[in-house]
C-alpha cells in the first residue's frame, strides 16, 4: 500500500520537509500504520549505517570513481531523490551489515591479494521481501567458515558458549523463516528475521575479531 506520503518519508527523516509538510506528515503518521512502519524501517537502515565502523578500502578505488564521474558528467541529469520500498530498505539494511561483516572477514583472512569477494545483492523493487536472505546466508556461511578456521585460537569454554548462542540464534532464524513462509509479505516477520540474522552476523564478527586479536 502506498499513499502520497510514502515517498516523502526519506525527506522527512533527513529533515528536508518544510514545517507545513512536516506537520502534515506527522499527522498522517499517527493514523497510517503502513507509513509509520516504513519510517521505522528507514530509521533502522540509517541507524545501522551510522553504527558501521569506518574502514579503509582494500584497494585504491579513486581512479575508478574518477573515471565514472568523468563518464557521467557528459550525460548529467538533474538529481532526484530516491525513495525506497520496504524490500529495498530491508535489502539495504542487510547489505550494510554484510559489508561490515565482510570487511571483518577480509581482515581476518589477512590475504590482501586474491581475497574472496563478498557481494551483497540488492534485489529489484518487485522482488518478494523474503528473497534477500540468500545473500545473507552466503555471508553468514563465510563468516562461520572463517570462525571454524580460527576458533582454535579461542579456549574451549568460549567456543562452547559461542556455539551454544549461535544455535539459539539459528533456532530463532528457523522459526522466523517458517512464519515467513506462511506470510511472506509480513513486514514485522521480515524485519524480525533481518534483525535476528544481523545478530548472528554481529556475533560471528565479534568472535572472529576476538580470534584475530589472539593470533
Amino acid at each position: 500500500m502506498n499513499d502520497q506520503w510514502t515517498n516523502r518519508l526519506s525527506e522527512y527523516l533527513d529533515g528536508e520537509l518544510d514545517s507545513t509538510e512536516r506537520a502534515s506528515l506527522e499527522a498522517h503518521l499517527a493514523t497510517c500504520g503502513h507509513c509509520y512502519a516504513t519510517l521505522g524501517e528507514l530509521r533502522q537502515v540509517v541507524a545501522r549505517a551510522k553504527a558501521l565502523a569506518d574502514s579503509e578500502p582494500e584497494t585504491n578505488l579513486w581512479p575508478e570513481i574518477k573515471a565514472q564521474i568523468s563518464r557521467d558528467s557528459t550525460s548529467r541529469r538533474p538529481s532526484r531523490r530516491v525513495s525506497f520500498t520496504v524490500p529495498q530498505l530491508l535489502a539495504a539494511s542487510i547489505a550494510l551489515v554484510l559489508l561490515s561483516g565482510g570487511s571483518a572477514w577480509l581482515a581476518l583472512q589477512q590475504r590482501p591479494t586474491n581475497t574472496p569477494e563478498l557481494v551483497a545483492v540488492t534485489p529489484p523493487p518487485n522482488t518478494r521481501v523474503a528473497s534477500w536472505t540468500g545473500s545473507t546466508d552466503v555471508a553468514i556461511a563465510e563468516l562461520q567458515a572463517a570462525l571454524a578456521q580460527n576458533e582454535k585460537r579461542l579456549d574451549s569454554t568460549t567456543v562452547r558458549i559461542v556455539r551454544k548462542n549461535l544455535a539459539i540464534i539459528d533456532r530463532a532464524i528457523a522459526e522466523a523463516r517458517i512464519a515467513l513462509r506462511n506470510d511472506p509479505g509480513n513486514a514485522y516477520l521480515n524485519l524480525h528475521l533481518a534483525d535476528t540474522m544481523r545478530r548472528k552476523v554481529d556475533l560471528l564478527r565479534r568472535v572472529n575479531d576476538m580470534a584475530a586479536a589472539r593470533s
Partner: peptide, 13 residues
Amino acid sequence: LTNTTGKHRKTFK
C-alpha cells in the same frame, strides 16, 4: 487502537 498492520502488528496512540 489506531491501526492494525498485517496479522501481527498493532499500533496504539
